[in-house]
Every structure is written in structure tokens, then in C-alpha cells.
Design a binder for these strands. Structure first.
Length: 427
RNA sequence: GGAGGGGUGGCAGAGUGGUCUAAUGCGCACGCCUGGAGAGCGUGAGUUCCGCUAACGCGGGAUCGCGAGUUCGAAUCUCGCCCCCUCCGCCA
């Protein structure tokens, strides 16, 4: 959520920055400013009347003790009370409208973000490694996986429908190994605290990070309870400190969490529907940071480096892309994507999206910080980044490490997580 | 899921319709005292919104789990919800 005072004081600047996203949200800035002004006018009147009522009511109490007649004052205050009630009803209605609009407006892009209207406007920041060379035509992961008997898409569809994955045998073990590998790197080498959060999320938490109210149709929701399946660990983990004031000296707080991620992805059919590139459920290890405002962007660079480290250790070729204004997520002020090379697809796949949401989510979730002397305070900045998404990492691994005979030779770093096994061979 | 108990400031804990501007204690900050510390004494402290101000500030509203309601006036009374504790049921 944007700072209402920023809209109040610099509506044109806010409009201009929103316009670079291309979502048309700048049109609502005027509505917010107008409602805000109306609200404050009514508030001033209501609060003045409340001050009077408080004062007179106190006097009534004292006069009553002395046995004096106070019926006239009581009648007058009844009138005042009715007027206050009317004003407050009006104010509540405006608050409701204001919230409805404010919660739907995306974050302002950081000045360092390139302006563009879609992915074509993104800019590549760097590449690491080289695409692997093959003496044969590299196969796509679904062929590799099915031939090895480690992935079974038809049976996953039998259980759940299209867009779900069933891992089997060494394939299931590889998934589990990757989760442990990622968690170990980030907790042992990068200083993150491991979190295992709930996967079912209430509505307020979903609003806190920005999934709701705007993206309701992308979320899985339970029928009988107001609960949603976590679309990313960012939601439960960023909400850990909801409604809290954190001591400044605790910052930055770094968490990492494994969760499955559930996404309806309505209307995503077509490209990328084959295999496990775009699915309704995938595993992910997520990194979350709570920082002071002034360190947020340094921490973002470190976060990206932490996510990259995973791919470096696995020896996977990748590139880092800075998203343009039009391609960024709703809550983000600046986002880097990390895209890993998948030889079977002849494409880079997004396995990580690292964002600084600044105070956008902290405002919604009301997460603040305060120095010991109380002088330095404000909303924390919240960052999140995949470290990394598993399904696509799995794709890149199978396709990069495939051998001519159909087997897969896995990186040595995974051996301890696979009971010493480094090769998956046909059964 | 059922029954009962509870939710008050950083913490503990009093308060069941009117100086509650929330007692008291602990803890905290500052000052006095001291060679220094402690004790003692004093002062002050949450969060948030609105208005005025160049600013330091000043005035006001709200806030006793959350939301409605009754009343001139609600921490206190009524209703709904959430969470915690105890017991029962069910259960990996």
C-alpha cells in the first residue's frame, strides 16, 4: 500500500511513477486524494464534537454527584452524539472506499528500474557459465524423466489433473535432496534462519503481502474455511511479524523457508504447459528479509547473490535479468529474475525472482521498527527471493546433466543428499 | 467438535457505569545525590490519526484482544468474532 501522505503531497509524482507500470492505476490517484480530503474534513468535525462530548460528559458526572439537575446538558449531548454517529458512519464509508482502491494499487517502481511495458523491456545484468554442449540432441525433461521412471505426469493427472507432478523413486529422492541442499546452503553459509510455516493462510496475511484482494482468482481457497493455500512462502514468512514493532538492532532479519507453492494460474494454458515448467504445485525454498529502509537495496544485491550461489554450486548456466517497470510484480519496487538454462527447451527458465518491496507490504501488514531511543522509526523494508524454485531447477538439472544413454549424472555437491548416489540410470 | 476459565501498558497485576488523565510493583530513560556505583528521591515514558507551526512543539481524537450495540458518559453492561489455558471427544 502506498503512503497516503505521499499521494496527498505529491499526487503528480505518484501518478507519473505508476504510469510507468502500464496498468492504468494512475487514474485512481485523484480518487484517493479526493476521498482523503473529504475524510479529513468530516474527521475534523467529528473529533471536535467528541472533544466537546468528553468534556461535558465529565461535567455531568461531577454535577450529578452534587445532586444538580443535568437533564438539559444530557439532552444536548444526545444531539451531539447523534451527529457524531452520522459523521462516523460517513467516515467509515469513505474509509471503506479508500481501502478498496488503495489495496488495488501496485507499488511504485524504484528510479533505477528501466521503463518498459513488458518482458521485452527487461535488461540482462550478467551471465554465469556456459550452456552445456552435447554430442547428441538434448531431450526435454519429460522424456528423460519418464524414460528413467522418475517422473510420471499421466498418473499425476489421474490423481489431480494436468499441471501436477508425481516424482518416483530416485526422482522423489532428488526432489527431497534439493530441498535439503538449498536449506543447508542458506542457513549454514548465508546466515538465514530456517522457518517451516503453515501452508494454509488466512485472508489478512494474504492481504498483507499483496496477493489479495487483487489476485483472488489465482489462489486456491478452501471451501469451508476462509483459508488459502500458500502460493509462495513469502506470504506466511513475511507475515510472521505482522502488527509488530521490531527493535532496530535486530535488523536485518533473514529467514528462509521451504514450502510447496500452490497456484491456480488461471488462463495460463498454451506455451510452457508441457512437463513441469508451469504447474499448479511446486516446491520452493524462499528467502525473506526484513531490513531498515536505507539498507534494503544492498540487501537485495546480497539476496540475488545468495540465490545465484545455488546455481553456481550445481554448475548450471544462468543469467540475471533486471525487470522493467511493466514486467514487475504488484508489490515490488525492483526485481531481479534469475533464469537458468534448460538445454531441452533451448530456453532460459525463471527459477528465482528477487524483489525489494520496500515498505509496500510492511504498510499492509503493519510491520515497523524502532531504535532503542525511539528516535529512529518507520516501516521495515521487506525483500523476498526464491532460493530457488524447485520444479524448474529440476528441469534444468535433468536437461543439463543428461547423458547420451538417457541416464543423468548429477553434480557432486548433491551426493551427500542422495546417499552417495550421483547418477540416475534407467531401471 | 463439546464444556469451563481467561485476554488490561515492556512485564506482573488491580480496576464491574462518572477526576481512569488506568492504581501498585518490577523493569526502562533522564535528572538530583555520590569520588564512582548502588540505594534513595524526583521526573518522564506506548501506538496511531487530525489540526495548527518554518521548526522545537502545542491542541484534539482514538486505543484495556477485534468488531458492533446500550448510555450524556464504557476497561467496566449486551451481542458477535478471534486467540490462549484446562478438561472431554476425535485423531497422525
Amino acid at each position: 500500500m502506498l503512503d497516503i501522505k505521499l499521494i496527498r503531497d505529491n499526487p503528480d509524482a505518484v501518478r507519473a511513477r505508476l504510469a510507468t507500470r502500464g496498468g492504468g492505476d494512475e487514474a485512481r490517484v485523484g480518487d484517493i486524494a479526493a476521498l482523503d480530503e473529504q475524510r479529513r474534513k468530516l474527521l475534523t468535525e467529528s473529533e471536535g464534537l467528541k472533544a466537546e462530548r468528553n468534556k461535558v460528559s465529565k461535567e455531568i458526572g461531577l454535577l450529578k454527584l452534587k445532586g444538580q439537575d443535568v437533564s438539559a446538558a444530557m439532552a444536548r449531548m444526545k444531539q451531539v452524539g447523534d451527529r457524531i454517529a452520522a459523521l462516523d458512519t460517513e467516515i467509515a464509508a469513505i474509509d471503506g472506499k479508500l481501502q478498496n482502491i488503495a489495496l488495488m494499487i501496485p507499488n511504485l517502481p524504484h528510479p533505477s528500474v528501466p521503463i518498459g511495458k513488458d518482458a521485452a523491456g527487461n535488461s540482462e545484468v550478467r551471465r554465469w557459465g556456459e550452456p552445456p554442449k552435447f554430442t547428441f540432441q538434448p531431450r526435454p525433461h519429460w522424456e528423460i524423466g519418464e524414460k528413467l521412471g522418475v517422473l510420471d505426469f499421466p498418473r499425476a493427472a489421474k490423481i489431480s489433473g494436468s499441471g501436477f507432478i508425481l516424482y518416483k523413486g530416485a526422482g522423489a529422492r532428488l526432489e527431497r535432496a534439493l530441498i535439503n541442499f538449498l536449506l543447508d546452503i542458506h542457513t549454514r553459509e548465508h546466515g538465514y534462519t530456517e522457518i517451516s510455516p503453515p501452508f494454509l493462510i488466512n485472508r489478512n496475511a494474504m492481504i498483507g503481502t499483496g496477493q489479495l484482494p487483487k489476485f483472488e482468482e489465482d489462489m486456491y481457497r478452501l471451501r469451508d474455511d476462509e483459508l488459502y493455500l500458500a502460493p509462495t512462502a513469502e506470504v506466511p514468512v513475511a507475515n510472521i511479524h505482522r502488527e509488530e514493532i521490531l527493535p532496530e538492532e535486530q535488523l536485518p532479519i533473514r529467514y528462509c523457508a521451504y514450502t510447496p507453492c500452490f497456484r491456480r494460474e488461471a488462463g495460463a494454458a498454451g506455451k510452457e504447459t508441457r512437463g513441469m515448467i508451469r504447474v499448479h504445485q511446486f516446491d520452493k525454498v524462499e528467502l525473506i528479509k526484513f531490513t531498515k529502509p536505507e539498507t534494503g537495496y544492498d540487501e537485495l544485491e546480497k539476496l540475488v547473490a545468495n540465490a545465484e550461489r545455488v546455481l553456481q554450486l550445481l554448475g548450471l548456466h544462468y543469467r540475471v535479468v533486471l525487470l522493467c517497470t511493466g514486467d514487475m510484480g504488484f508489490a515490488s519496487a525492483k526485481t531481479y529474475d534469475i533464469e537458468v538454462w534448460a538445454p531441452g527447451q533451448k530456453a532460459y527458465l525463471e527459477v528465482s525472482s528477487c524483489s525489494n518491496c520496500e515498505d509496500f507490504q510492511a504498510r499492509r501488514a503493519n510491520i515497523r521498527f524502532k531504535s532503542a531511543d525511539g528516535k529512529h522509526r518507520g516501516f521495515v523494508h521487506i525483500l523476498n527471493g526464491s532460493g530457488t524454485a524447485l520444479a524448474r531447477l529440476y528441469v534444468a538439472l535433468l536437461e543439463t546433466c543428461q547423458q547420451a544413454d538417457g541416464s543423468v549424472k548429477l553434480p557432486e555437491v548433491l551426493a551427500p543428499y542422495l546417499g552417495g548416489v550421483t547418477e540416475i540410470k534407467p531401471e
